[in-house]
Design a protein around this nucleic acid. Structure first.
Lengths: 259, 259
DNA sequence: TCGAATTTGTGCGTATGTATC
DNA sequence: GGATACATACGCACAAATTCG
């Protein structure tokens, strides 16, 4: 006789009240005992209702205090690329306005045997040998206004940079110059790049570095620079979705058809 | 005396066994009764252990069968744009090889009063009136090889398309042609587009449409087409990261510096 | 500063429904 | 149909965090 899911309709009611604005951002949701009284259910059901809303990202539970409608601060926009002939039309200018600037960064460099995925992206042959380093790995924490913005782990093949003045990306005369400039000094002309975008839950370590809550979602961008057909650098870039969106600008003649 | 979190160490053990490969992809995890016996805990704790692993994306629960280590099939690549002068170098060609093709789609169109976020993107003034529709909304389900690939909800301002042959995007002579072609027939030249990328948990409705598990993560792309400075179409595109990655190709002279 | 009240988090035991094999 | 396993539900207890008099 029981439909089995007594928590769903109750969650629906609260969801609706949030969407309609009846419950505004920051407002406290009914507590567990309150839901038990008003809907005549047990604590397990009332708990499940609130947990469901939290897991959907609509609410935040504060232990000892209550469950509240989640506040969504304006997210800043990280501009990763736009086409140069998409010159500053006003809608673009508006979108650029809130753009996040990367001001400072920390880094550490070391030689490693590149992991499997990176091997594929850099075109390194074979499975690799832990005792034979074949890539320079550099890990960055980027900040804007002293707030952490993104993490990046970059790999450059040692076969390319070993023995050159730019082995260590952030040391020497070419430090802080970016991959394209640095590669130019050793005669490598970067012609284009590819960015493979995905997303996943943040790891514990990343959550601490980015100052976000565990369970948050991050965008993961695998960016690879090419000199013609040869990959010369690849990086895993991690961006917290709670605070940032990523903007790609494209020219329409490149856009895929049929959508 | 109780440390309070009896499920955490048990979850750690299973996490370790998964990471080490002791439990391979597709293997069945210990069931709830099994965990109760082997660790001497109640069903609530055993349940919490498994639910924790599922929520971390490490396992999948199949009702009536068991909980299994999640399998991660190769993800296909959705190419959203690449620069025309990034012509088929071999690494690109390789990346294109596994590319997902959109073959068919369903859709439904209706006039609506555009929601808040869409109003901003389309440059519609004022808060909008529920009784006064000002946009044509079209919802798509795209499929490739009959498998759902992405969802899209598109908005075009009625002030632009009302009374034209293309009011209904998927009807009439310009159906199935894409935004750029359709707009051209009414004298609107689309010059460029912007894609704002983010991610979030999938909604229940989307999970059913895309045939993914609830709790999965989706990429959300807000794509807007512009005719010079005027936005002429915007869409919310939803892509499940469990099966797809999105590829953006860029020219290096556009790339942001300092990374 | 302390303590009482409130609220969430975790835990125990048990029962029923339902999907899978 | 029967055995197994997960999902949901009920009631109760205590710990930890927060709030406030």
């Amino acid at each position: 006789m029981d439909e089995g899911n007594r928590y769903l309709p109750i969650a629906d009611v609260l969801r609706q009240r949030i969407r309609s604005g009846d419950l505004a951002e920051g407002d406290q949701l009914p507590s567990i005992p309150e839901l038990m009284r008003t809907h005549g259910v047990s604590n397990a059901v009332a708990r499940k209702v609130l947990r469901t809303l939290v897991s959907e990202g609509l609410a935040i539970a504060r232990s000892g205090s209550g469950t509240y409608v989640r506040e969504r601060p304006e997210r800043q926009i990280l501009v990763r690329s736009w086409h140069r002939n998409a010159r500053g039309g006003s809608p673009f200018a508006i979108e650029m306005a809130g753009q996040a600037r990367i001001g400072s960064w920390d880094y550490t460099s070391r030689t490693v045997c590149a992991p499997e995925g990176v091997r594929r992206r850099l075109g390194l042959e074979g499975p690799g040998d832990d005792d034979v380093p074949d890539a320079m790995e550099t890990s960055y924490v980027f900040r804007g206004d002293s707030e952490p913005v993104q993490l990046s782990t970059s790999y450059e093949p040692l076969s390319l940079v070993r023995g050159t003045p730019i082995v260590l990306p952030e040391e020497g005369p070419q430090a802080r110059k970016g991959v394209v400039e640095r590669m130019r000094t050793i005669g490598v002309t970067v012609t284009h790049s590819a960015e493979l975008v995905s997303a996943r839950l943040v790891t514990v370590v990343e959550a601490r570095q980015l100052d976000v809550a565990p369970g948050d979602i991050v965008l993961v961008i695998e960016r690879t620079y090419y000199a013609d057909t040869r990959p010369v650098e690849t990086a895993d870039i991690v961006i917290p979705v709670a605070r940032f969106q990523v903007l790609y600008g494209t020219s329409t003649w490149d856009a895929p058809a049929g959508e």
